[in-house]
């Protein structure tokens, strides 16, 4: 998760409570917003006696996380009024244990209330497919139009060297649900977004085999990667006309 968001947001509060750990942060330009939740089910055990916000610089956290082995068990601990976060990595065979403390910071962050929204179009597609579309089209243009209709969803762009588009039609993969493409539509949608941000969101592709795009005209796009016990959501404000 940290790897997926560290290029978008730098200093974040990890809000801990009985439900688990949540994070909400806007990127520097305030065009995109990251919202993450790791429910208690993601942890074993999980304990939180008092609601607490752990202000963490993600670059610092990455430096420490890189010291962990892929299969290590990670334990995160913070005291009641902490000035640091304690991280312990234990190898699966328990023959190696490493321990780090990183300094916490006071982060005064604007918290936005995001209402439950009934979107006009909800598209589910393989995350690798979405990543490829964003990467391919970003070679041509800075922005992409996403047009969802009952026939399919069309990603199109135009730039100095020419234009391009990719159209996806609904498709069911019976063996692997995450490889299916589905489109649920209440009304046609056509919105334009900056590809720079979408390419950035796709760094989360390794977290989930499929990604959900939720669109309604004139509201931010929701790009959601569902995780075992939680989610990573990105919201992106649409581009507006001249």
């Amino acid at each position: 998760v940290v790897e997926a968001i560290k290029d978008l947001v730098q200093d974040c509060n990890f809000d801990c409570n009985d439900d688990g750990i949540q994070l909400q942060a806007m990127d520097n330009s305030h065009v995109a917003l990251v919202s993450m939740k790791l429910s208690t089910g993601a942890f074993s055990p999980f304990r939180c006696d008092r609601n607490i916000a752990l202000g963490i610089n993600l670059n610092s956290l990455m430096k420490v996380l890189r010291a962990a082995g892929n299969d290590d068990i990670l334990t995160l601990k913070a005291e009641d009024q902490p000035d640091s976060l304690n991280l312990v990595f234990e190898s699966p065979g328990q023959d190696r244990m490493s321990e780090y403390d990183i300094k916490l910071m006071d982060i005064d962050q604007e918290h936005l209330g995001i209402p439950e929204t009934e979107y006009a179009a909800t598209i589910s597609l393989p995350s690798a497919e979405f990543q490829r579309i964003c990467r391919d089209l970003s070679a041509l243009s800075e922005s992409v139009s996403i047009e969802a209709s009952k026939d399919g969803v069309k990603f199109s762009c135009s730039g100095d060297i020419g234009n391009g588009s990719v159209t996806l039609r609904p498709h069911t993969n019976v063996e692997d649900e995450s490889k299916s493409t589905s489109i649920a539509l209440t009304e046609p949608v056509n919105l334009t977004f900056s590809l720079k941000y979408l390419v950035n969101f796709c760094k989360a592709s390794s977290l989930s085999g499929s990604v959900q795009l939720c669109l309604s005209n004139e509201v931010p796009l929701l790009v959601e990667f569902k995780m075992g016990a939680g989610y990573l959501r990105f919201y992106l404000a649409p581009k507006i006309g001249d």
Binding site: M26, S29, H30, V31, A32, L33, E110, H111, L112, G113, I114, P115, S194, V219, P220, Y235, L236, A237, P238, K239, I240, G241, D242
Partner: peptide, 14 residues
């Protein structure tokens, strides 16, 4: 950025 609104145009502060 030009041609682009900020996200807090759409969502109010909690």
């Amino acid at each position: 950025p030009p041609g682009q609104r900020k996200i807090n145009f759409y969502y109010s502060q909690k």
